[in-house]
Design a protein around this nucleic acid. Sequence first.
DNA 1: GTTATAGTTGATTGATCATTCAACCAAGCA
DNA 2: TGCTTGGTTGAATGATCAATCAACTATAAC
Lengths: 204, 204
Amino acid sequence: MDTRDRIIQSAARLFHEQGYAATGVATILREADVNSGSLYHFFPSKEALLENVLDSYLARLYPEIMEPMEKSEPDPVSRVLKLMDWYTGFLDENGCRLGCPVGNLALEVSDTHPQLRSLIDRNFENWTSIIHGWLEEAGAALPAGCNRRALARFILTVMEGGVMQSRAAGSTVPMEQSVEQLKSYFDALTRQAAQELAPIARSA
Amino acid sequence: MDTRDRIIQSAARLFHEQGYAATGVATILREADVNSGSLYHFFPSKEALLENVLDSYLARLYPEIMEPMEKSEPDPVSRVLKLMDWYTGFLDENGCRLGCPVGNLALEVSDTHPQLRSLIDRNFENWTSIIHGWLEEAGAALPAGCNRRALARFILTVMEGGVMQSRAAGSTVPMEQSVEQLKSYFDALTRQAAQELAPIARSA
DNA sequence: GTTATAGTTGATTGATCATTCAACCAAGCA
DNA sequence: TGCTTGGTTGAATGATCAATCAACTATAAC
């Protein structure tokens, strides 16, 4: 890996573990085994470095997380449910630490750094668009009148909110309970969709 | 207001606006119009000061936000829906900035400061317990088998996740869409509860 | 009036902060 | 061989960081 990529990788890891403000440039330099001059040769500032970290997150979401999901699970609704479990598992594997690198930055820098805010937003939009695609792919498995864009947003909302509480609790319980509720909502939606398709059938 | 309270108030405001790491003690001193010796007379460290800020959040949630809600809206289900709108309104009034002071800190310091993490958790638990109480109060308006504790957690999850995305987007749309979905879930639950109460009646 | 207690003052500490820069080096090309 | 380009070195900068502390003041107790 070349110097530039090594800097981005180290910065990404440290920003994720410690946050943006709490991470010193000196620590990034040590971690990447690079001198300060090299870092400032590639990036004009610490903020610009974070911009590149966010760019790399944006570029990697689909090929590294979403595309493998598509290949391992053909049914779009099951795939969405699987994704929820994947996030819960990720949280568990890390002992309820770290969480979402983009979400962390969203709350830390959105108000004070407009440029970064917009890049974070693009990351969220990208995530939402992919899931939106899956939900459209689900076709009649979801109710016809269901706002699938809003539903995709809602899934991200629940993932981020659940992760936040689980990190604070030091336990996966809040995340699991949130996912349980979201799945119960999904159940209601798919049941409604099934009824729309077969309006004659009735439950006892 | 005495010196100690002035320090806590200024610290709370600045931590909320800029984050914990990004806020310097010198800025707090200037804001509170206090000398450093005074601050360190009351609080042994910046971290201890944040602990007191979190204590004050914990003490103020019920009397300042939840109790007024209870007094203005007697029906517990309507009250929960009203609370969602209240958070959306708060976000809007602040131009999609600030967000939840506890949520911000949860993502910034949970991993690195165990003491603070536990205090943040207590704030979330407090919030959840109050809403859990409301949902129990709702009685048969919700399905008998519904996990009301998990549902209370879920509402907090959606609030925090929605606020995060709205701050990143600089727009209330993500928050509104998330609340819309949550209300639709609530609708499904109350409809189910109504059916449990009147099992004979059927829809066309 | 004396003495203790609680709180205030603000200069000072050494560490760490992000950033700069002149010197240096290796590879490619003339 | 000399020149250019892209990258590296690491000491140095001034600002800001959290925290300290000895001196000082106001209040209350006796």
